[in-house]
Design a protein around this nucleic acid. Sequence first.
RNA 1: GGGCCGAUAGCUCAGUCUGGCAGAGCGACGGCCUCUUAAGCCGUCGGUCAAGGGUUCAAAUCCCUUUCGGCCCGCCA
Length: 559
Amino acid sequence: MSDDGGTDVEDVDLYDPYEVGNIGGRAFWADAVADAILASDPDEPIVIKGGVSPSGVPHIGHFNEILRSYFVAEALRDRGHEVRQVFSTDDKDPLRKIPRTLADLDWNVVDFGDESVDSGAVGQNLGKPYTDIPDPFGCCDSYGAHFTELLEQSAELVDVPVEFVSNTDLYADGEFEAITRDLLEHTELARETLSAYQASVGDSYVPFTPQCSECGLLTGQVVDVDVDGSTVEYVCSDMEAGDRTIEGCGHEGTATFREGKLPWRFEWPAQWEILGVDFEPFGKDHAEGSWPSGTDIARNVLGIEPPVPMVYEWFTLNGEALSSSAGNIVTVAEVLDLLEPEVFRYFFTKNPRKQRDFDVTTLDQLVEEFDRFERVFYGAEEPRDEEEAELVERAYPMVTEVADDQPIRIPYTFAAVLGMTDDPELREQMARREGHIPEDATEVEIEAALDRVERARRWAKRTDNEYNYRLAEDLPETDFEAATEAALDELADFVEAGHDGEEIQGEIYEAAKRNDVEVGDFFAAGYELFLDTDQGPRLGPFLAALDEQFVLERLRRED
RNA sequence: GGGCCGAUAGCUCAGUCUGGCAGAGCGACGGCCUCUUAAGCCGUCGGUCAAGGGUUCAAAUCCCUUUCGGCCCGCCA
């Protein structure tokens, strides 16, 4: 049935997040993870969970939660299993600090102080659950709903089907109630278990944080528990949040088990039980902290088996840590302005255990890597070894839909060069001249191939690199020698007589030689006239691709 | 201070699990195409596998120590 062999999972600790996915015998890490999940003997449908707090602008780091899970889900589905990929938006969490940047629903990233942001709505509500804070843009039901909406959009942008689950809803619907009662009945056990991992857990620790009915903050300190009545008595107390203190109002009240939340160390295992989670990937921050305590709590307090775990390394962005507060983020929407979704998805097929830099300046290399990956899949290029052959075979169909014919891909840097003109006809001609579009390509194929031009053009512009060219709209100022001008005139006549790109290329050399102009200088003159710079694409085919009247006028230095 | 993860060519990365000639693409350099000009073809260069030690007939791979980058061990998630 499911097992097509190849991996020896007997010796692997299925609950060591560093070992899962590191199993040998598999070219694609997601298959190794799938092996571990199946070895844990899960019930169908297999539930794969990811999740984050909707605390601010979703960035590429959050895609680990969506795409790592996705590849594992696909590996399992491929072997005939039914899989649900769920994503918990941990929107009951309290807002702990003011974000430096926010984004509206169209992904416009703005500073917190921007006039479009109702900063007061946020600033006055530190310590409240995200779902109890007004949307600073006034468009969604709450702060939490706003950023959850962006998370959902993110998943759609990369075309991954995910079931979103609101933690706030789970509390409101009483899903946590049974576990909360259980924990409050066995507070001593909960306390002892967690204290092995958190030194601060003392005798007064209660694994439930009531939300104050007066001020709405998650600052309730439990002073008494009525298990039969399903309520707690609390005093609204101060809460430490980073380097500041969020002050409680001192109110003394009563809360039900739905009016508050579990501390994260208990909430996470509780989610596993409620949602029946069989697998969950997480960043390395969780691996040393909440994972060990979470497994212990799951087994010894809640009496359940934890899911199979997997650690992924964090990305850096342009060499720096991803940080919403420092403003070093790139949103998915921004990335997809520069890359096709399949290229972005490809990025996540790489080994999750390596620290990786997402470098915008070298995105062309990522695209080139993807193009090769694709060529190998379609048999247009030899795999470097057995391992790569297997990886490509497994991963490519999960990255993008397999077509009957290999898609036409214009090299990314060349696509950026094509961005020098806005004329689609000219783009196509230039691409054809350089052999990037085959003779027999269909309209649909060509259009798809040229899609890359806009993205590559934005990349060249954004990074202002050597591919950031624009066809000079007006005659640039030049200062040519008489001999150069004579050669340009002769070249113009040659073009006017009707010759193809290769012939023009040859004539450039001939015209230069006839007029005693250095060949290099003459090329530079050509680039100056058309691109206002001293180098560029292979000039003959380039001129042949341009509108002839335009070329003639420009070569003759006419306005 | 204790624990954990990572580091391989100028760049992007395979290879480490299971020890067996140090790899790919890009870049650079050289040649070819009547032709130095972002195309194409051919070729070359490029390495203290972070450093040092150990085990072994044999180490990028296993073990120990160290350096650097990051994470956890407070709160929080």
